[in-house]
Computed example of a mutant assay.
Amino acid sequence: MEHDVEPELPRGIALAWGVAANPQRGPKREMSVERIVEAAVEIADAEGLGAVSMAAVASRLGFTPMSLYRYVTAKDDLILLMQEEATALPPEQSTEPGDWRARLEELYRGQMIVYLRHPWILDIPITGSPITPNSASWMDAGLGALDGTALSHEERLSVMTTMTGQSRWAGSVIAGYTRAQREAGIGGEDQTRQEDALFRSLITADAYPSLRAAVDAGVFLDDNDPFAFGMARFLDGVEHYIAAIATRGHDAPRAWVELDDAEIAGDKKYREARKAVREAEKALRDARKIERQAARDAAERLKRASGGA
């Protein structure tokens, strides 16, 4: 495979790496890409990503929107630079020599802190790997933690991306809870009690037996971090896999999961068939509910009949 072609860097990535040409003239000496990005991050931290616009940033800096375009030519580039600024560098403990698992755990906690400090990052659509200096440093730290293990380079990347996905999912849930609490003006304990009450009123043992058992066990009132438990078990699995490579070798690679072909998905008869499947699945769930109720009624009748004999 050829790797010697020099790609043309998009403007935002060139700015992030500091290789973009500076504007020949600007409104004032005080204006810079760094100041623009810092102002945009301040707006997003206070009001969310939706509040960020060239006009809002210009107003905060005391310039006109057109003056910003000499430095950052598109809002997408600004958002990329905001993400780079807010992401910062990974924690030092994750890059120091030591146990690979402890280093990955530091990375996981560090990513969670980034999302909690700057929850608007979670609102940025994922369109690929952000090829910027700070993002590259996080990837390098994760892969570096696994140096010296028996994992292949592809397996190390898989571990890193899975851990990153777990931290993003956990961050989105926790940030969402925090936002909801702030908007409702309630504390965390009040929200969990409200949710527990809703589950208890809506989830029945008849329709959702396992979920109801969990509700009765008080899982929605528990203070422990369920994401930390899941992350620990994931790393247990990686540790077990590394130990087993010597005897069983590496697992075979697997292909990406793909959606149905676009042309097939757009076919009218295919859509009708998919709709029929969903309706059948719903009918099956309803039938099973009726079956469980009939079984309980039958058991009750037999109990009464036995008692009357």
Rank of each mutant, 00 (worst) to 15 (best):
M163Y: 03
I290N: 05
D77L: 09
W256A: 13
L259M: 10
L9E: 10
L104C: 02
A294Y: 02
R101F: 00
A294R: 12
V159N: 05
L211R: 01
P23A: 07
E258C: 06
W120Q: 12
A252F: 03
P97T: 10
P10H: 05
L235W: 03
G148R: 14
A74H: 14
A86P: 02
E189A: 15
K303F: 02
R304Y: 01
H240I: 12
F229E: 13
E92A: 15
E154R: 15
R101A: 00
L259S: 10
G18N: 09
V114K: 07
P27K: 15
D261G: 12
L146V: 06
G18H: 15
R233A: 05
A51F: 02
M1A: 12
L151R: 07
A141H: 02
E8M: 13
L122M: 04
I126V: 10
M112P: 02
D123V: 01
R212T: 00
G171I: 07
S53W: 11
S137V: 00
F229Y: 14
V19R: 11
P7Y: 04
E258Y: 01
H250T: 13
A46V: 03
D261F: 15
F63Q: 06
A205L: 04
F220S: 13
G218E: 00
W100N: 02
P65F: 05
L302N: 07
N22D: 15
G249V: 08
T164Q: 14
V5P: 00
G187D: 15
A88Y: 06
A88V: 01
D286R: 15
R25S: 04
A102S: 15
A299R: 14
G188V: 04
A228F: 00
G218D: 01
A88Q: 05
G165W: 04
A44V: 07
S32A: 02
P226Q: 12
E30S: 11
E106C: 05
G62R: 06
Q93T: 09
R182F: 03
D261L: 14
N224K: 09
P125T: 01
Y108K: 00
A102C: 06
V19D: 04
L107R: 07
E272M: 08
T64I: 01
I242R: 11
T73Y: 02
G308S: 14
I113Q: 14
T164C: 08
R117V: 06
A184L: 14
W138R: 10
P91S: 08
T204Y: 00
F234T: 05
V238Y: 01
M66V: 08
R278N: 12
E155W: 11
G185T: 10
S94T: 07
K75Y: 08
T73W: 09
D225G: 07
E154Y: 08
D4S: 10
R288D: 09
P90F: 11
M82W: 05
T127F: 03
R212K: 15
D267A: 05
Q181G: 13
R301C: 00
S59V: 04
R278D: 11
N224F: 05
L259P: 08
E279L: 15
E105Y: 05
I242Y: 05
G110Y: 00
A21C: 04
A40D: 00
G142K: 10
V57Y: 11
A145G: 12
T161R: 11
T73M: 03
E8Q: 13
P90V: 06
D216L: 10
M66G: 13
I290P: 01
